[in-house]
Design a protein around this nucleic acid. Sequence first.
DNA 1: GTGAAAGCGCTAACAT
DNA 2: ATGTTAGCGCTTTCAC
Lengths: 338, 338
Amino acid sequence: MTKPTPDPRHTLTLRDVSEASGVSEMTVSRVLRNRGDVSAATREKVLEAARALGYVPNKIAGALASQRVNLVGVVIPSLSNMVFPEVMTGISETLEGTGLQPVVGVTNYLPDREESTIYEMLSWRPSGMIIAGLEHSAASRAMLARAGIPIVEIMDIDGDPIDHAVGISHRRAGRQMAEAIIAAGYRRIAFLGTQMPNDFRAKKRLDGFEEALARAGLSLVDREYYSGGSALLKGREMTAAVLNRTPDIDFLYYSNDMIGAGGLLYCLAQGLDVPDRIGLAGFNGVELLDGLPRKLATMDACRLEIGRKAAEIIAGKAMPGEKVELFPTLQPGDTIRR
Amino acid sequence: MTKPTPDPRHTLTLRDVSEASGVSEMTVSRVLRNRGDVSAATREKVLEAARALGYVPNKIAGALASQRVNLVGVVIPSLSNMVFPEVMTGISETLEGTGLQPVVGVTNYLPDREESTIYEMLSWRPSGMIIAGLEHSAASRAMLARAGIPIVEIMDIDGDPIDHAVGISHRRAGRQMAEAIIAAGYRRIAFLGTQMPNDFRAKKRLDGFEEALARAGLSLVDREYYSGGSALLKGREMTAAVLNRTPDIDFLYYSNDMIGAGGLLYCLAQGLDVPDRIGLAGFNGVELLDGLPRKLATMDACRLEIGRKAAEIIAGKAMPGEKVELFPTLQPGDTIRR
DNA sequence: GTGAAAGCGCTAACAT
DNA sequence: ATGTTAGCGCTTTCAC
């Protein structure tokens, strides 16, 4: 009298649930998707059977049949620098409840990887794509433009978006920071950044920064680049190197908060008078800074808001113009003279 | 004489490439997958046509037909604490070149979200799943066990894996740290952790830690939990609270390096003699510590190695036993008396 | 080396 | 409220 247990090595299909419940495949499908009118009785029978069997629907088949995929591709350069996790939070939060699911791809700032990641993602026919930056290979742009889905380029608005863009002007952010520094009376200003040839946003910030310096008749008195390793440690080392080489520097502008924090710890350890003898500023507004002995000047990159807005566009909750510009706030902290 | 440009609003299919190149769909498919014997001439024709049209294959249809999906589901609780990004790096590195692609889902330590993430992922019929932790809902375990694909539970080995497990013993890690602390002569020891009811690994570390204390006739003299906010700042605040409440504490054991780093900065700012008057230790071995003024004692969680090993199992490059145990090394740094 | 036919597991559209 | 039919865009299998 053994019930014929279904072969556990066979992945279950709608048909199995249909047979187990004595209801047609179509009605089973309706129940499982909460679609159309199904009587409470059949509904119960079906759910019961599906649960008992441990049925997991096959979205591949569903997607092919319905031409609908509830996935949103998200392509970002890195996960390790505190900025993209927060963007992801904004995206996930907003997608929650829309039935859409983010799928993340990381490119490590490599254009080739970006291109293949985009290709790979598009081949799954997602409902939309969110991509960091406005600089992409011609092939990438072409693929995205042809895909027939909403494309949102995030973080940056200094350039021409393929479809939509949500971000800040990094050029302007650099300019603004330079103006604040100059207004505070600093004159011998150095730049310290990570060597990332493909970090176009850092480059734009520096461009804007130097532009504002030039307008004030100033220029950078030194600059230092590093790559790899612990950002905090690198910040220390770079700062030591620059201050040894050019002792009369009175301001250190960092391309991001982590190396800025390293620099700040170094200056404090050296007993330098911050911000009177020397000022410092970073970029991003990472919450890490809240725990430091002194608060580094920085500029909020609007990461959470960017994630939210981008997701809203994909979810059709926003009917924006081509570009959505957000405006970062300068947080002077304790490292710029007042 | 206008060439009939294909409707750009229509997503391209193999058929379009077939017509454009005058080669059968089947042969086009072969070329695009580098399968079987195709003459160099046809090959060129096909690739040319595909490129010209901007064809992107439809993996949904491909997967349905071939019953093969090159995706590996990775389910982790968080992206923001430095530990999982490194695990991801290990996974990506190892999957590189195998044709497999990781797809990440984040659960925020919520069992319900974990369950739905697993369900969602399994419904895409991935080639394997990598999941943080050994504690899952009964439904999650059942789904995974039934899926018929390799399942690797990572980070922890204190428990019963569904299929494979790769990780360290957190219980033992806690024990080891306690033993080192006791051996260094500390006796009034407090614990500081983030309030995460579902962080089972932190809990196991604490269990092991207290077990070793008990064996030495000791017990925690104080404990403090916090949740949310900047970990560095929380570390500061918790440390201040504990030291005010129990001034004669001589050692602070933190559940992770970030709050430990905050505590260390606090102690140094207070002018406390570290490690003689008071010692500190964290957990994880994050590279961030390299940039601090003094190096926090910690224990490497073998994150990169865990990611690599897990991916090797999925990729079939390793034929391991059920559990793969890795052994973290204790890094005494500058905050434990020698 | 190339092509034709069948079908993967599901859902849209149309019955009833 | 439920069932039937005809694909979705590929790949497998087999034929030539």
